[in-house]
Amino acid sequence: MNFKLKIWRQKNAATKGKFEDYNITDVSSEMSFLQMLDYFNDKLILDGGDPVHFEHDCREGICGSCGLYINGRPHGPLKNTTTCELHMREFEDGSTIVIEPWRSKAFPLIKDLVVDRSSFDEVMFAGGFVNINTGGAQDANTTPINKKISDRAFDAAVCIGCGACVAACKNSSAMLFVSAKVSQFAMLPQGKTEATERVEKMVAKMDEMGFGYCSNTYACEFDCPKGISVEFIAQMNREFFSAKVCSHKK
């Protein structure tokens, strides 16, 4: 397969970037999108050029490192699929593929297609954990948890923190990410104890990092590679509301 690539090139945050047009030939339809970029970079290096920088790690859809804005969608055209699990057979032979980095004030660009997503880490440091020392593993079933609730908590916990929700949102809002993290803890007994403080701290940090507000357009849910539901955003709205209304004065 042959493609025309239009890739955002930017040396660093201080310099201005621009799109560069490239041609790539002899791409196998079985290559993953990142393998295609590896193959492209090899050629670029042999030609004495600067390889296109992009982030990746596990390449099996669980680490959340990869994330490219491909032809107008985070992680490309497939639903519930990360960039690394997207294959070249999904693209039309001879077509142009436009590759852009995540665009958000809270995700400053580092180089080419690599952005700094540590604002997500900051949100996690603000409350995305359980504070008590849980000690060694307990016997199974000492704390009974309804199967439906544990499944639901897991549905939230599958978030890999890739930032596609922010990239997809017209406001670069991080509500889907933060709500998944808030909800996964709020539903389980270990996390419930600190649920009120957690949601207040995590929302405050989210606002501080410069993400936009939620407009309920649900683009995040549409483009989330893990299919996380906006019902978790509603759950966070509930948690935050009751935290603001019911929490004690500090």
């Binding site: 804005y69 107008g72 852009e100 665009r103 683009a219 549409f222």
Partner: peptide
């Protein structure tokens, strides 16, 4: 973005 977002909304 350069490409008009195509996310389903």
């Amino acid at each position: 973005y350069h490409v008009t977002p195509k996310s389903g909304t």
